[in-house]
Each structure stands twice: as C-alpha cells, then as structure tokens.
Amino acid sequence: MASKSLAAYKRAEKKVKDIKGFYRHLTIYLIVNAIIVIEGLEGINFLELNTSDIDPSFVEWLVWNVFSVPLLWGIVLLIHGLQVYSFHIPILKKWEAEQIRKMMEKEETKNNKPLI
C-alpha cells in the first residue's frame, strides 16, 4: 500500500514540476518576445524614417522576421502546453517509455555487478 501512495506522490510531484516548467517557459516567451517585437518594430520604424530609398520588400522581410520568432516559438510553446496538460503526443510517450526502460536496465546492470 505504501508503494502505491509513494508512486502516486511521485506522479503528482512530476506533474507539478511539469506545470511549473510550462509556466516558466510561458513567462520567458512573453518577456523575450515582447522585447523582440517592440525593439524590432522600433528599429524598422527608425530605418524607414532615416532612409530615403529603402526597398518596401526589404521592410516586409524585416517585419516577417520580427514576427517569425514569436510565431515559431509559440508553436513550440503550444506543443509544450499540450504535452503538460495531458494531450500527450504518442511519439513523445513512446520515447519517454523507452528512455525509462533504458535507464532502469542501466541501473539494474550497475547494481548487479560484482564488487570485486
């Protein structure tokens, strides 16, 4: 019975750590991308105001680059959130199970070696 409650505690502890990690990721995403977008748009605005013969397609390319980082990182953040909140991606679960199995085998081999 104690091993069942210990296992449940370990699962709950892992879940809490995963959620905490997601919130840390979200916080960093918001701070960093706010800086990227604000500074990027200010830089583009400065460039447009101070350069008379700037190519509009270059400005469009710059704008795309400013917004591509938050977009791509946002996709990764979405996947992280889905994984943390139980929308498990089968390939990730399979990988996780395989890694656990490998680590357990490695630990067993290490513990079963003779002390000579």
Results as ranks from 00 to 15, higher is better:
residue 42 E to I: 06
residue 42 E to T: 06
residue 44 I to Q: 04
residue 44 I to P: 01
residue 45 N to W: 13
residue 48 E to Y: 13
residue 48 E to M: 15
residue 48 E to R: 13
residue 48 E to I: 15
residue 49 L to H: 14
residue 49 L to P: 06
residue 50 N to T: 14
residue 51 T to W: 06
residue 52 S to G: 08
residue 55 D to L: 09
residue 55 D to F: 07
residue 56 P to Q: 09
residue 56 P to V: 08
residue 57 S to V: 11
residue 59 V to G: 02
residue 59 V to P: 00
residue 60 E to N: 14
residue 61 W to Y: 08
residue 62 L to C: 14
residue 62 L to P: 02
residue 64 W to K: 06
residue 64 W to P: 00
residue 65 N to R: 13
residue 66 V to E: 01
residue 66 V to P: 00
residue 68 S to N: 12
residue 69 V to P: 00
residue 69 V to G: 00
residue 69 V to L: 03
residue 69 V to C: 00
residue 69 V to H: 01
residue 71 L to C: 07
residue 72 L to M: 11
residue 73 W to L: 13
residue 75 I to A: 01
residue 76 V to D: 07
residue 77 L to W: 01
residue 78 L to Y: 15
residue 78 L to P: 13
residue 79 I to Y: 03
residue 79 I to H: 03
residue 80 H to D: 09
residue 81 G to E: 09
residue 82 L to K: 07
residue 82 L to N: 11
residue 82 L to A: 10
residue 83 Q to W: 06
residue 84 V to I: 08
residue 84 V to S: 04
residue 84 V to P: 01
residue 86 S to M: 10
residue 86 S to Y: 11
residue 87 F to R: 09
residue 88 H to D: 14
residue 90 P to L: 07
residue 92 L to E: 00
residue 94 K to R: 13
residue 94 K to M: 11
residue 96 E to T: 07
residue 96 E to C: 06
residue 97 A to E: 08
residue 97 A to M: 12
residue 98 E to Q: 07
residue 99 Q to D: 08
residue 99 Q to R: 15
residue 102 K to D: 14
residue 102 K to S: 15
residue 102 K to P: 07
residue 102 K to T: 13
